[in-house]
Design a protein around this nucleic acid. Sequence first.
RNA 1: CGGGGCGUAGCGCAGCCUGGUAGCGCGCCUGGUUCGGGACCAGGAGGCCGUUGGUUCAAAUCCAAUCGCCCCGACCA
Length: 489
Amino acid sequence: MTTGERTNRLMAEEKLPTRAQDFSEWYNQLVIKAQLADYAPVRGCMVVRPYGWALWENIQQALDRRFKATGHQNVAFPMLIPRSFIDKEKSHVEGFSPELAVVTIGGGEELAEPLVIRPTSETIIGHMWSKWIQSYRDLPVLMNQWNSVVRWELRTKLFLRTLEFYWQEGHTAHATREEAEAETRQMLDIYADFAVNDAAIPVIPGRKSDAEKFAGAETTYSIEAMMGDGKALQSGTSHFLGQNFAQAFEVRYLDQTGQLQHCWTTSWGLSTRIIGAIIMVHGDDQGLVLPPKLAPYQAVIVPIFKTDEEKATVIEVARKIKADLAKSEIRVTLDEREGMSPGWKFNDWEMRGVPVRIELGPKDVAKQAAVLARRDRPGREGKISVALGDIVTSVASLLGEIQKSMHDRALAFRQANTHATASKDDLKTAVENGFASAFWCGSPDCEAAIKEETRATMRCIPMDQPADSGPCVYCAKPATSRAIFARAY
RNA sequence: CGGGGCGUAGCGCAGCCUGGUAGCGCGCCUGGUUCGGGACCAGGAGGCCGUUGGUUCAAAUCCAAUCGCCCCGACCA
């Protein structure tokens, strides 16, 4: 083998498959190569690595401040739940029984009652609330917990579906149906606001059909996003639980007139799956592209030098830039790793999706300037030279521009791949590589038939509905609302 | 649970058909030359060949069983 051939082959090995070649394999390799996560020794479990966890921490902060601003408090409930709790709410049991992990032995002894590892915490929270809530004066109860849960899934994929996953689950109890419904909708809005403004992911907030809703919910809402391959990903959910859990767990209060009433409850969750969405919405063939507001590093400085003297001056200026940016609350790192060429570092940080790269070499130092390269526009056209004196403001405004243009690009992509469809055939074509928006009469039979014939599921009935009406895409009976159909993760 | 693929150095793989001293690339360590888009040379460390059992003078290689992982389909945030 000649040197040239060997070099080409090695470069090919380091590169990702393109998204067009094999989207699924592109995703799998990217998660590993960007060092977000790795496979754990147990099937279907993942280890979230420091870079992935830093991203999750930024997501947590963005959400947590929204939760606190709306009056929620964080709590911690235990991971182990008596098996009998799950059985108390009928549709909850039916939904979760197949995917429970159950502990039957503790301290070497068979347990009198098996314990399940929480698949979600409605039941144990309902149990505790029944002790804590007595009066209308105790309401509303507004809680949230950051934790992990276990669901024994058959087919897994890093971040999108693992046996154990990290999330937050919010749980609230209210005196009236109206108040609980308003809470459910409020949290849906918060998720949408976070997705759009922080993750730069345009989402469709909507209501789930009965077939797709949460086990035990009266109504489930979700935000749905389109991935880079046109498939849908449910990226956050908010459930109106009615009085189902309050009745199962006797969560009751005395109202102003002395009547004993069941509470109205809600729950809502957003998981590390959102990281999968960020990867699949924004990533390109070079690797990750992270939205500035959530990126662990918003900027990386790559120093360039040949001689020791050059190194000394370049590093000194680079450290100054780093300090200045950090002072302005910009998350920045300086890549001082030895033994890697600048070109290698460029590629490495592109793989990891850092929004802005600052290239600094002797030529730049001589001009008192630096080169800024934006990740969302690869190649030369994404590079500009800026004066060192302006670097903080330049980087800050560039980050803002990137954040906006990432969202706009994702929105344009979704719009280009969403089609209003009036016939079954149109719908079938549309879901090959995007979303279909179609009138639906509301019948579960039509929904099931569409799923059967097109492999697409109903993602949601968008909150935002045009005022028109038309024939159901399947049975042609009059329908007043449109639904989104798509293949989904 | 069905279909497919794979377990050999940290990673990616070859070797297995046709049994006989375990190999290549990347990465890692040392030294030197390099460095503005994935550098190069020289030297070096690193392996119960997934596990168990069988056949054989001899097994990474043949036979059987078993475990695990990944990918594709039915359930799901």
